[in-house]
């Protein structure tokens, strides 16, 4: 079965939204801990981050949101954030407190694989990554590799990146780990196309947008992704 990871920004409604996403068929939930200057993010997640910060979602409340989400969910929960938060909180302390609150791993968007090697996390690789760096990321990553499908920031795009196929091919030669593709995947068609080649898909901006319409809308949206992705799994298995 191909995996679906759904990104949600931390906030008061997040535990309920995460449950709805899992009901709809999400396997993994990424929880955004907002940062004031998110270099890897396009307008949708940037604005969601601004809103969350305005609502007071700093590190401690985000950890509480993580713990509250964990209470009713078994699925892997992965905080996704930026180095500045870990610098301020302490890298080790952040990892420990996130794990205590129920985190399965971490993603730090601006911490490339050769920085802070002691911090166990899901590593990202990009179409521009060299084979050496992909190999290092595979060696250091926590369970799976996050394949950034585009040179660009998060956000919906038309079509699916032409860079994805080549990146998957190169990465498969270097590792047997599961490869989940993210950035720019928003429609069921795109999710299906990515799932043809990857072991899973990560959906961020579109999920964040739909989450503003509430848990029921999010559940329906994730179900539509699930259906599309499963149609691929059925064919390819």
């Amino acid at each position: 079965m191909k995996k679906i990871a759904i990104y949600l920004m931390c906030g008061p409604g997040t535990p309920e939204l995460a449950e709805a996403a899992v009901e709809g068929g999400a396997d993994i939930i990424e929880l955004g801990f907002p940062f004031s200057d998110p270099l890897a993010d396009g307008p949708v997640i940037r604005r969601a981050g601004e809103r969350a910060l305005a609502e007071g979602m700093r590190t401690a409340p985000c950890l509480e949101c993580l713990a509250a989400t964990r209470r009713n969910l078994e699925a892997p929960l992965i905080p996704m954030t930026y180095a500045s938060l870990l610098e301020a909180y302490g890298y080790e302390r952040f990892a420990a407190d996130a794990a205590d609150a129920g985190a399965t791993s971490l993603i730090v968007a601006d911490l490339p694989v050769d920085a802070e090697p002691g911090l166990r996390r899901v590593q990202l690789v990009a179409p521009t990554s060299t084979d050496d760096r992909i190999a290092l990321a595979a060696q250091r990553t926590d369970g799976w590799l996050y394949l950034v499908t585009v040179t660009g920031t998060t956000g919906a795009r038309e079509g699916i990146s032409s860079a994805l196929g080549g990146l998957i091919e190169r990465t498969r030669r270097l590792t047997e780990l599961p490869l989940y593709a993210g950035f720019g995947i928003s429609t069921p068609e795109q999710a299906a196309a990515a799932a043809e080649v990857a072991d899973g898909v990560v959906v961020g901006s579109r999920a964040v947008e739909i989450a503003t319409d509430g848990p029921a809308a999010l559940r329906d949206y994730v179900s539509s992704l699930r259906e599309a992705v499963d149609s691929v799994s059925a064919v390819s298995s």
Binding site: L39, P112, A115, Q123, P127, S129, V148
Partner: peptide, 24 residues
Amino acid sequence: MSAPGRTFGEYGGRYVPETLIPAL
């Protein structure tokens, strides 16, 4: 090549998305 180390004592470094590292 991609020096992970900080460049000026404990300051500097490269805190950017992976996409940019090869360009740096």
